[in-house]
Design a protein around this nucleic acid. Structure first.
Lengths: 246, 246
DNA sequence: GGTAATTTGTCCGTATGTATA
DNA sequence: ATATACATACGGACAAATTAC
């Protein structure tokens, strides 16, 4: 049960009791809740306490109060309007902060079948490819291997990457004035490639997390594709979704 | 404009004035706001009115109050102004739709050190554990192994799981009237456990994607933890983030 | 290191406003 | 017109715990 801890403030105890009554159908959806005055008497508390309790239930969208008409038990919102969730971009770039990027390769190349499969880009197109290991200050080994594939229209940012910290797409936005409006992310579990295993100092055949992000401009054009390969021992992808008003 | 309509309630006028002072730097980020008592005197209103005003500013994450230490002006989270990203809950539950859940185990258990590590729950607590394989119509093999760990306060939903399709947390919301307001998700790459490998019909030692989701109520209480283990060959985690106005 | 002042959180009783049924 | 019921508002009080002395 939802224990009613005696130590909890009164308004929480009242909120709990009313919540229970609502889910038990004592106050069915669509019905009026008793007036605040009546609830004061029932729980032997002041109007302040009742109103704090009702405020909690309102925040949970269990009830809806309107002046002079009373307080209504409302149906739970349907799944469609159910939830919009926000993820902070911090999560998206968390791994990048404070990490140094040691460039390993930086050249134009043509997408072949293998790369097309890994990046989702069309075979035959020319893209700027930049690869390197991401190093955290003080740590002995790189945290991940990163590949950037940058649309040739924005290839000029390639020269800036050496001195740049953090995510690359703001560079594109600054240099070309094109906004990145959509990021598509795919995460897969793979086995560590043997050539990377050595450089990352893990055993080949261990698990690795492969993150692929595709950055699209408002035109729907793909500006950049990034692939990060993390040894599973050093990385968990983490994010928090919070429900916002709908 | 933020016109101070004389008809507005006093607490809104106070909130507006304080908001203006904060953006004007009169109360810089990191500084203490005057005490509630001081604000009562400044605006010649009661403490009730000041507290209602501060409540509005808190809801906007402009300030943060802590008992006995006062009220602090907090920095606007870079994330909220920078980019907020929307992910539909469809993505979150996409995997579940159309899949049948074959329950394999359903019992109360005590969290031991190993489970604590895997779930993030405290050692020693009792949780309802439900495990099973998720099966898609027509496919020969299960798509993943799913473990639910459900707060004993909500363990009553366990009986409904047999006949239930789709995500579990709406059940909790309906039965107990508690909203899930936050979902934390962690994704890691692991090697397939041998006992699961047989049931999922993949080789042991292949890569697997482990998704852990923690569902929190508005009280900050953890209602449920879900762990999904997907063979890498059958699953990529995919989502799209769209930038919205800050 | 104990003590007093401070500050938010909680709670009460009371009163007025306001628009509806 | 009147009673109703939520919204707003005041003043007073104690609790708990951090902070300063």
């Amino acid at each position: 049960m939802t224990e009613a801890r005696a130590t909890d403030p009164r308004y929480l105890q009242v909120a709990r009791a009313l919540r229970q009554d609502i889910v038990d159908g004592i106050y069915p959806v669509g019905s009026q809740l008793p007036t605040e005055h009546a609830l004061c008497e029932r729980f032997s508390v002041s109007r302040y306490t009742v109103r704090e309790a009702l405020r909690r239930l309102r925040e949970d969208h269990l009830i809806s109060s309107r002046p002079r008409t009373g307080t209504l038990v409302v149906p739970r919102t349907s799944t469609s309007s159910y939830a919009q969730d926000v993820m902070s971009i911090d999560d998206l770039m968390a791994f990048a902060t404070g990490a140094r990027f040691a460039i390993h390769a930086n050249k134009m190349l043509t997408i072949d079948a293998d790369l097309a499969d890994r990046t989702g880009l069309p075979v035959g197109e020319e893209w700027l490819a930049v690869g390197g290991f991401r190093q955290v200050e003080g740590a002995p080994n790189p945290v991940c291997f990163t590949e950037y594939y940058i649309n040739r229209a924005f290839a000029a940012v390639g020269r800036l990457l050496q001195r740049h910290h953090g995510p690359v797409f703001p560079l594109i936005e600054d240099m070309f004035g094109r906004s990145i409006v959509e990021v598509h992310q795919e995460i897969a579990a793979v086995l560590m490639r043997s050539d990377l295993a050595a450089r990352l100092d893990v055993d080949p055949g261990t698990a690795a997390l492969e993150l692929r992000r595709t950055y699209k401009t408002s035109d729907g054009e793909i500006a950049q594709v990034t692939i990060n390969t993390h040894p599973s021992s050093r990385y968990r992808h983490s994010m928090t979704l919070r429900r916002v008003e709908g």
